[in-house]
Design a protein around this nucleic acid. Sequence first.
DNA 1: TTCAAATAAGACTAAATTAGTCGTATATCA
DNA 2: TGATATACGACTAATTTAGTCTTATTTGAA
Lengths: 135, 135
Amino acid sequence: MLKLSKRTEYAIMAARYLALKNSGNCVTAKEIAEDYQIPYQFVAKVLQDFARTEMVSSIQGSKGGYVLNRLPEEISLIDIISTVEENHQLTECMQEDANKTSCEHIDCCKIRDPLIEVQRKIDSLFAQTSLKQIL
Amino acid sequence: MLKLSKRTEYAIMAARYLALKNSGNCVTAKEIAEDYQIPYQFVAKVLQDFARTEMVSSIQGSKGGYVLNRLPEEISLIDIISTVEENHQLTECMQEDANKTSCEHIDCCKIRDPLIEVQRKIDSLFAQTSLKQIL
DNA sequence: TTCAAATAAGACTAAATTAGTCGTATATCA
DNA sequence: TGATATACGACTAATTTAGTCTTATTTGAA
Ligand code: SF4
Ligand code: SF4
């Protein structure tokens, strides 16, 4: 538990690569996969997620690839994590509007509120860590 | 990812229960399981883990159960998590002595050092949160 | 206009982890 | 000696993660 998925690790690597090579023309998923020895299809999907949230622009076709849209100091770990992981929270019940569908214990659970506070602190930690610090 | 396991949630609940009922005689796993509507066998194992690290004392036999050995303010979330989860880290490579067996990319990985720093901060966050704050 | 190289995306499979159960042994009190 | 409790390993089922396959589409250049 509390482990980052490979998906997230690859996402951080890819974002870092884009930030470093952002001088001029775009970068392909293949290039990143080969450079870091990580599965091509996997990293490609992560980049597609980035494109969907407009963190990067994707250019289709031959000579295509990806370009970072924002400055490394304007991208935080929480941006990266939340685009590639649909649920990056400590428990199923962390959202304000969580209900019994999220967790059957929600009505009597006494540890939820303290955990929400811990979650807030962790999120703030990730928000404070920018891509620039990882270059 | 980054989700606490049910094992950890039950552990926090059980520790909290012990801290609240620590007035006098001991508390059984059955009592905790029934009170929180969580699986008996599961919470029993968590309590056995606690006993192994001497966070609680276990009393066998009839009229047996568990008693907290330390004050709630002397028990932190990191104590609880590290006793019930053998590996609570962000990646497989967080230990100082990690090698290629941990992760094949370890020699060329550029995100490891920044992640170790994030890990340090998360651990410190858990260390600063005491059981007393969760009562 | 056709080929090569690239993104886009959904379906699928395999491996690993998590959650929970079962069975049996042991200890202790009444 | 029986009831009640911990101790603990083995097992199973469910879920999640990691990775692959396939097909479609876009675009630049020969
Ligand atoms: S309500 Fe309590 S038991 Fe349920 S997911 Fe939230 S913290 Fe965990
Ligand atoms: S070495 Fe890098 S890729 Fe491997 S587990 Fe550590 S952070 Fe992840």
